[in-house]
Design a protein around this nucleic acid. Structure first.
Lengths: 226, 226
DNA sequence: CGCGAGCTTGACGTTGTTCAACTAGAGTGG
DNA sequence: CCACTCTAGTTGAACAACGTCAAGCTCGCG
């Protein structure tokens, strides 16, 4: 990872986020405690077991948040531009309970976590805005628990493809940087199963696949998959 | 459910929570917007699909937060005294994405959600304290995703029993009000599997079971179950 | 004493994993 | 430019884990 030149917070596009509640002084304060870093594909943005040091805002790219356990790794969520990584551990001084890894080259702003927490304790509107962000996280994570618990491989893969289409690539036709192994980890199945399920869906003409290029055809059917 | 007589917020035991950051005026304000309700076992505290109206603090009892989907219900988490229900949807005016049901008779305080949100926007320390509560939620829900995704039935049941022992009943020996069916839903397995796994654990002398009374014997082995 | 709900047990089927073999494509070096 | 290798992806067969279905058990309660 390497530092970049960058505009200060007050001129940044992420000003559309809860940062809009900050006044000039507060913006200057948080800007002083900011780094801009480019993570290359495969690099860790943070590592499970280490203390949390920064809140990380994703300006572009794609990351996965993973839980590293004895039995193997599991992807908790995938996130793209506009995401604040690390809010989950604000005011919890313990070691990070997850790692984050760049799945594509990713451009990010890092703020010192203590400075960030300080602002939250000073500016309640900012705090409320950040709380909304966290609440997005928790609701998506509830959704994920339900998906993992209730759906079979076909449904889980449908969910992933739809989510990539809607939230990440914003088109029914997209080329992903995710490997089959990544997609298998996200959907919690073996790469072999993933391959077979993808073939099933191709045979049933629900989508077209060519390597890492996808085109979702029968969205309705995909949404109904269990 | 029926209203109870109760002490005002400023004299309440839950003053040990982020409420300690509120001044007398703020305490009076939130107390005006408070109800105390007793939910009987089986009653809904809130219902998926309806708008969220209150933040609910559990004073005693046991509840399950569930996701109701076409394929069936899945327990997202179980919670006991000290829990704030509804923080997850603060500043998100949509319909509730989950239901909550009392698994035991449960005594709770309900605050009007708008009043609660108002306080958060006024008092940043209070906001930060509530953020910490939400962060507990999200981290436990990450933990749950990992458990559901990576562990087999034996590991999932171990996790539940340990969690009941440590967080709910605070003893290695406890009698639960949960039916086998409840425990099966929480651990995402069939009641039949639950029964079999419990028998395995009994045979291996990891615990003693007698109806709804449990005694955990070999905690170390239970923690290592996969 | 008999009934019924909740729980347990056994037999069997389904789902998905594992392991191993095979294939296709992307570098690499002669 | 062609072998050579390496990795990612696919396919098939055997196997394990778990759910389903049906039957039996137990215990509290009328």
């Amino acid at each position: 990872m390497r530092p970049e030149t960058h505009p200060p917070c007050k001129n940044c596009t992420c000003i559309s986020t809860p940062f809009r509640f900050l006044n000039q002084d507060e913006l200057a304060y948080i800007n002083q405690n900011r780094l801009e870093i480019k993570f290359k594909k495969g690099e860790n943005l943070c590592k499970q077991g280490t203390p949390a040091s920064h809140v990380i805002y994703l300006r572009s790219g794609l990351i996965k948040i993973i839980s590293e356990e004895n039995r193997g790794n599991l992807v908790l969520s995938i996130e793209t531009s506009g995401y604040f990584l690390g809010l989950q551990v604000l005011f919890k001084p313990q070691k990070l309970p997850f790692s984050a890894v760049a799945s594509e080259d990713t451009l990010a702003c890092l703020w010192d976590m203590n400075a960030f927490a300080e602002l939250i304790k000073r500016n309640a509107s900012f705090a409320a805005g950040m709380m909304k962000q966290i609440n997005d996280d928790i609701n998506r994570s509830y959704q994920r628990i339900a998906t993992l618990g209730l759906k079979h491989v076909h449904g889980r893969l449908s969910d992933l493809l739809l989510s990539l289409s809607v939230h990440v690539y914003k088109s029914t036709k997209f080329t992903t940087s995710l490997a089959r192994k990544d997609m298998a980890e996200i959907t919690n199945m073996s790469p072999e199963s993933l391959s077979r399920v993808l073939k099933d869906m191709k045979d049933e003409k629900l989508l077209k696949v060519n390597g890492k290029s996808f085109e979702l055809i029968d969205i309705k059917a995909l949404k109904k998959m269990e």
